[in-house]
Design a protein around this nucleic acid. Structure first.
Length: 621
RNA sequence: GCCGGAGUAGCUUUAAGGGUAGAGCAAUCGCUUCGUAAGCGAGAGGUUGCGAGUUCGAUUCUCGCCUCCGGCUCCA
């Protein structure tokens, strides 16, 4: 049990001072401090608990615990969301006690003695630079911690925190380490901010593309077919098609040519690229082609087996096309685009809806160019990415420059000279494009640095979709070359890039961004005609034909339901325009228009409506 | 893959704590022909995720597996 009076807390032989120099009462400090209080509460409930780390994070805090073993099973006590309320109420109790946070520096030797029963803390002490360890004490709980902390729990608003979830988390984020139990909590300056954050989370849940995808009949993922493999319903396939049409049209405008390549290829292809070495864990295992059943029955000798892989990326094919004949500098830059479906065997727990799947279609392209051309080509792609994101309504995105981790060069192919050059040029491009980009070390691809564009959706969540990768390694591995103006052999650069990333993920993000109510040009069904009674069906069908002539995607509701019901069903499908037709409309040769989210727009003649629709389609696009 | 939770009709769910489950919506059929978010009625729809075990009997208890959800790890 924690001591009720904390004024003179003592733990072992160490005494503490409640004198804070570096701390100020920032939200981050409060979040960090409340994680210590959670640790104290968990210790009160499970005295044998071992502690990991407990930092503040965006919106709150967490703490990692190794809970004691259960006597009956010998395994760690399982903590479930149902256990959170009791920890929460224990925390509230502690917060009320006005516990002080006191700091002390001791020698690492002393610290090791103090934390002799805390294996994870001992590991941290060993890693500390210098000779001293900094400790914080509050309510009798001493934690190895560099702080800063608040002075007293009185500074924490007990109504503004909430424990949100329990999770497993590997010690130090390494999957080879044991898994600890992590408790996440939310904490804000005020109760109001907490509840508005919780409300925002609930809003996000309503927009979940996995739920909307089913309600709007867009796609299906079924274990009978396989995990992470998406089937598209007619409406989802239509949305895909609209995106693809846009994509092809814009690529042809932007100087790309289209190529097409197979879904499988010899294993040698990826041995050459290096992917087999770096990623064979997450490829579907090779398809072996050797003996047929007939061969075996006829007892024929086994031939040397051939191995094929489902393609996890398109680049080796495009490179092979390039290498099929000698190339001249006059042909460069070559820009080859393909919507290519690739398969990656992601671990089962990593799959999620459309955003993380095992089979997906990249809107891929490779640009092969000379050193002189590379900067312009990079910029050209960056502009194309920005244009595409904005067209689809994503005006807010963050740009990240993903660099090699200088401390872990083994993860990457190629030499320092190549990395220094490509990283420098890519940074210049980001600079000259005026992106407020962030550098992220350790986020590069194994073959080169990249510029990642993460979309911010309407709820402020980030999604990595577009990426532009600057590759100097595959040209070397595949011995790519061209003859330059001096008649010498020269190695080109390869840019890999996707605009959507994958159709699957991009559609998932689109669904959530628009909450399923797509802009008119993207809507699988743009207009639904609702005849008031069956008497009016023929007029409705006639209107539908006329709209189809204008390439407007239209449905009719011919069933014998009431108008109210037809409206309700169409509204739930979030169809942008509903046309209601009855006796009046037939007499006036008009339609009564109802717009999703806006309501009744009144009656108008059909030509006026088509003009309105066509105008909206071109403006939004 | 790992930690935790969950799986009942197409969807959303109720009940039962060992004695084979009740509804709403959707779908089907009939009646209704309606003016801006659910007209009325009927019948039908279930091996309670799958497989073992315990038991006279399992949707319920035990074990294994599958899938989904929240995280962790990973994302060329």
């Amino acid at each position: 049990m924690a001591s009720k009076q904390n004024k003179t807390s003592k733990t072992d032989s160490v005494s503490f001072e409640n004198k804070l120099t570096e701390s100020e009462n920032s939200l981050e400090t409060q979040r960090h401090s409340i994680s210590h209080i959670m640790a104290l509460a968990v210790k009160a409930l499970y005295p044998e608990v071992k502690f990991g780390i407990g930092p503040s994070i965006e919106n709150g805090f967490y703490y990692d615990f190794a809970l004691p073993a259960e006597a009956s099973t010998g395994t760690q006590v399982g903590l479930s969301p149902a256990d959170l309320p009791k920890i929460e109420s224990k925390m509230k109790e502690l917060l009320k006690q006005n516990l002080a946070f006191k700091k002390k520096n001791i020698s690492k030797t002393e610290a090791k003695k103090l934390f002799k029963d805390q294996p994870y803390k001992l590991e941290l002490i060993k890693k500390l630079p210098g000779k001293t360890a900094s400790l914080y004490e509050s309510g009798g709980f001493v934690d190895l911690c560099k702080g800063p902390h608040i002075k007293n729990t009185a500074e924490i608003n007990p109504k503004a925190f909430k424990l949100s979830r329990v999770a497993g988390a590997y010690w130090l984020g390494n999957e080879k380490n044991p898994m600890l139990t992590r408790i996440y909590g939310l904490y804000f300056a005020t109760e109001k901010e907490l509840s508005s954050f919780v409300a925002q989370q609930e809003e996000a849940e309503k927009r979940d593309h996995r739920i909307l995808g089913q309600k709007l009949d867009l796609f299906l993922i079924n274990p009978m077919v396989g995990m992470g493999l998406v089937m598209w319903q007619p409406k989802g396939a239509m949305l895909w098609r609209i995106m693809e049409d846009f994509w092809y049209k814009e690529h042809l405008k932007n100087g790309y040519e289209l190529v097409r390549t197979p879904h499988i290829g010899s294993r040698k292809l990826w041995e050459t690229s290096g992917h087999w070495g770096f990623y064979n864990d997450s490829m579907y295992p090779p398809l072996e082609v050797s003996q047929t059943l007939k061969d075996i029955q006829e007892k024929k000798k086994a031939k040397a087996k051939e191995e094929y892989l489902l393609k996890p990326m398109n680049c080796p094919f495009h490179i092979t096309l390039y290498n099929s004949k000698p190339r001249s500098y006059r042909e460069l830059p070559i820009r080859w685009a393909e919507c290519g479906t690739v398969y990656r065997y992601e671990k089962s727990g990593e799959l999620s809806g459309l955003t993380r799947v095992r089979g997906f279609t990249q809107d891929d392209a490779h640009i092969i160019c000379s050193k002189e051309q590379v900067k312009d080509e990079l910029k050209r792609v960056a502009r194309f990415i920005v244009f595409t994101l904005k067209t689809f309504g994503f005006n807010d995105f963050n740009v990240y420059l993903s660099l090699r981790d200088p401390k872990n060069k083994k993860k990457y192919a190629g030499n320092d000279v190549g990395w220094d050059f490509t990283q420098k040029v890519l940074a210049e491009v980001a600079e000259e494009m005026g992106f407020a980009y962030k550098k992220e070390e350790g986020e590069a691809a194994f073959y080169g640095p990249k510029l990642d564009f993460k979309i911010k959706d309407c709820l402020g969540r980030e999604w990595q979709c577009s990426t532009l990768q600057f590759d100097f390694n595959l040209p070397d591995r595949f011995k790519m070359s061209f003859i330059n103006q001096k008649s010498e052999k020269e190695q080109p650069y390869v840019l890999h890039r996707v605009l959507f990333g994958s159709f699957e993920r991009f559609i998932g993000v689109l669904i959530e961004h628009y909450a399923g109510a797509f802009p008119l040009w993207l809507s699988p069904v743009q207009v639904k005609i609702l005849p008031i009674t069956e008497r009016h069906n023929d007029y409705a069908l006639g209107l539908a034909e006329k709209l189809k002539e204008q390439n407007i995607r239209v449905e009719t509701a011919l069933e014998a339901d009431t108008l109210g019901k037809k409206i309700r069903e169409a509204e739930m499908q979030k169809i942008p325009y509903l046309l209601i037709v009855g006796d009046k409309e037939i007499a006036n040769k008009s339609v009564a228009v109802r717009q999703h989210g806006k309501g009744d727009l009144g009656s108008m003649p059909l030509p006026e409506l088509t003009e309105l629709l066509l105008k909206e389609i071109t403006i939004k696009k």
